[in-house]
Structure formats: structure tokens, C-alpha cells
Amino acid sequence: MSISYWRTRDRYYRIIGSICENCKSEFFPPVYTCSKCNSTDKSKIKDKEMPNQGIIISYTVLYEPMLGFEDEIPMQIALIQLNNGVRLVSQIVDCKIDDIAIGKNVKRVFRKIKSESKSGQIWYGYKFRLC
């Protein structure tokens, strides 16, 4: 696990984003400035765990994945809109290629993202699966 991953592990483990208490807007990844009301008041921008569920807005299936993910092909990647309106990109797991579709409901799961090597550390984080 890299130092930067360790520093932001709650972001990957629990989808910790931000809420602006001025205008109630929510963000992921976390923000220092609210892009809705432009507030920079640190006491008003708080950490917040994002909802566990959402819907698929768009998706793609990768057959030529990034280095380190070769064993995972075909890899399903989706743009997801969480129940609070926040959008993020995530891998969809535990489903056949034919089952994934725009508009389907998904829920967050905690999974291994990658291993540095056989003797290295394991990186964990969020993925989604159909529900």
C-alpha cells in the first residue's frame, strides 16, 4: 500500500466524500471548496460516507486492461449515480457480461483492488455489484 493510498484509505474503503453544510451538496471525491455555493468554510465542509446504492448510467467492458489487471478480463467498468446524485466510476463484479445494463441498480461491495506482488501489500476498496 502506498503512502498516498494509506492517507486516503477511508475514501476507498467507505467512499468517504464531503457534504457542504451550507447548501447540503454532496461530493465524491472529497472537496475543500463547494462547487455549488462556493463555500470554502472548513467548518461547513464535512466528511460524509456516500450511499451504498445507485444505478448504472453507462458502462464499458475492457478486454485490454491496465497493467496489473490482466487476469480480470473481461473487466466491467461503470459510471454509477449514487442515491444522493453523486457520480463515480467503479468496477462491476459478480455478474455475467450479458447481465450488465444501463439503469440497473447496484450496491457497494468491499473487494481487493490489487496486490503489489505476492509478497507485497493488498489494496482494498469499493466496487459494485448488481442488486
Binding site: E72, D94, F110, R111, K112, I122, Y124
Partner: peptide, 11 residues
Amino acid sequence: NFDEDITTMSV
């Protein structure tokens, strides 16, 4: 699955 282990299942 390829990305599951006892940590992920425990969580």
C-alpha cells in the same frame, strides 16, 4: 471470486 478474501467477506 478473484477479488474476495477473508477481509472482504468479513467486511
